[in-house]
Design a protein around this nucleic acid. Structure first.
Lengths: 151, 151
DNA sequence: AATGATTTGACAATATATTGTCAATATGAC
DNA sequence: GTCATATTGACAATATATTGTCAAATCATT
């Protein structure tokens, strides 16, 4: 196996691990507010502006059906409500309720505390740089993948 | 939401996205060899040395049961065989068969080609640096999480 | 306007992952 | 050696995710 192959595999395995770690962290932060990480994620996606289920899925790179399932659960729990969508009769808008907003706000302090500890551990500039690099890597993979498709 | 909170959330969302991207890439590379990404991952974990199911799970940060399922499938397909473990009568060792090794080798060329393209796209040094940063981030999260537990 | 292609949510079927429990086995303290 | 503890695979139950199909709705082209 070439060095570059090892590098690619190593990156992938590290990302898989990071994925699990961030999920665990999110789970831990969300639980006290009565949310799961997935619920928090969907709820967070509509804080700025209500979106239809398919729009949320597109924004987060997960499947429509997964979002639909969570959105229905959130709606059943009164965290979210479906509003008529002026632009599409079927694709109702998912919007947070007051209770949903309150739940997200309850996560705020612990979220901020953890973020502070992370930035402190990494160093202010290194933390920002890291996010930049992650996004650059993702963008690069996007390009390579679409090149792949074209071939 | 503080800047740091936004940074943490942004990192997490980017990692979730990267996770999906690497999974898609692995799936694409493995499929022509008759493997799924998960199969390749488990098979890859025992290339250097046979390991029991729980050992594989520990090495990759996934649950025992998930590994067990894949390992049983691989065994049913003749990619892997269970060997007696001198150190533990129940915990048989998962070892690749000749067919399993061959399948992994079939992935080699495409794997190398993609790795080359990735390194080329990122730049030789930036690529290595990136892996280092990913691992550093993971290690930092590990530390913060265990601090959390202790509290 | 008409029509073909695309997007959307609903629904079902299947695949995959997680959690909990159990008995067998191994490990460590003494 | 003995006993408490932890690890391991087997199994079951449940939760979650993915894939495929369908009709309604929208969009783009003409």
């Amino acid at each position: 196996m070439s060095d570059r192959q090892a590098l690619l595999s190593g990156m992938a395995l590290t990302v898989f691990r990071l994925n699990g770690q961030f999920l665990d962290i999110a789970e831990g932060l969300a639980r006290p507010a009565g949310l799961t990480a997935a619920h928090w994620q969907v709820l967070g996606a509509v804080l700025k502006e209500p979106l239809p289920v398919a729009g949320i899925a597109r924004a987060m790179g997960i499947t429509r059906q997964a979002v639909q399932r969570i959105a229905d659960l959130l709606a059943a729990n009164g965290m979210v409500e479906y509003r008529p969508n002026p632009a599409h009769r079927r694709a109702k808008l998912v919007a947070p309720t007051a209770q949903g907003l309150e739940a997200v706000e309850r996560i705020g302090p612990a979220h901020a505390a953890f973020a502070d500890r992370l930035v402190e551990a990494l160093g202010e500039d290194r933390a920002a740089e890291m996010h930049e690099l992650l996004r650059a890597l993702s963008a690069t993979l996007e390009t390579l993948a679409s090149d792949q498709d074209r071939t």
